[in-house]
Amino acid sequence: MTATAEAVRIITRARGVRQARTIAVIVVLAVLVVVTFCVSLSLGDFKIPVIDVVETLFGGGDRATEFIVNRLRLPRALTGLMVGAALGMSGAIFQSIARNPLASPDIIGVTYGAGAFAVFAIVTLGLTGVAVSALAIAGAVLTAFVMYVLAWRQGVSSYRLILIGIGIGAIATSVTSYLLTKARVEIAQQALIWLTGSLNGRDWSNVRSMGLTLAVLTPLIVYLVHRLRILQLGDETAYGLGLRVESSRLGLIVVGVLLAAVATAAAGPVGFVAFVAPPIARRLTRSPGPAMIASALLGALVVGLSDLIAQHAFGDTQLPVGVVTGVVGAPYLMFLLARANRVGSGG
């Protein structure tokens, strides 16, 4: 039937235009991430040309560069990359579930919960390293669990989830502040650096645990994104289309929380990345969906660039990466909200 063929051609073309744009954005972002990555490996007390860095990464280079690149700088850069990607995807999941750009894990309390537990570990229990990370993950998961249970009333409405999340975030923040006032100054400072989000002194153990988590979660994400696209149409429509709404939402929340938790455990609550990366990704791809790949790449790019700036832009002073993401992220949020208000579309 020629009419049907013509109709099929029209909708295929409509879809093709969007896909082409998404792919173009992903390619450009991937190139930028790789460039940032290589530059961050080349800069430092001992500058190595980018060409040599690339050579070293592929197994060449002399022993000195091999040591500096692979031992000293690569773990930090890789951790930053994966932290950014995890935060970007976590934000994309939460914002799509809630159909609200405010619902990122760093706004609705998940990372605050992780922070409170980590500070408890550092200040009260005197722990360091892996133990702090483990408690941070426990804190994030527990916070999310309490949030979900409190928001449950014959199903979880997104709106209630956000409000309760913000409330729990406030409680976690006040617990953190209380713990900090009780702490000795040196220890409080150590806790504060953790709370700002820092990539200083990351080694291969961080890379391995991040990498492992991402490897486990990625297939789950691929599986659940399909459902997320239906969940975005609202609960009733999603039911009508035969989606098991509550179990899908729970699965997505679990994955989102785990992503945010391991990222926070690895680098502290690096602010605004989960919040800012997905909206930029959606705007660039003009995607109505969660834009997971673009969000992950943008998260990685934001963290990578911010860490470059934090390490090298201020001479001898090295800042924690969270300071830079905050400075970059906050104005973007304000711009976004102002623009959305003018358009009247709610972001």
């Binding site: 909708i11 409509a14 879809r15 969007r18 799509s96 159909r99 696209r229 239906i230 975005q232 149409l233 609202g234 009733e236 429509t237 039911y239 009508g240 289309l241 035969g242 989606l243 959606r282 003009r286 995607s287 109505p288 969906g289 579309s345 709610g346």
Partner: peptide, 26 residues
Amino acid sequence: LGLLPQSPTAPEGITVADLVGRGRYP
């Protein structure tokens, strides 16, 4: 059995073809 709720919500910026395509989910 298909359903059209009273006030369905669409994600911002979704195109007509994309939205109709999501009806294929089941």
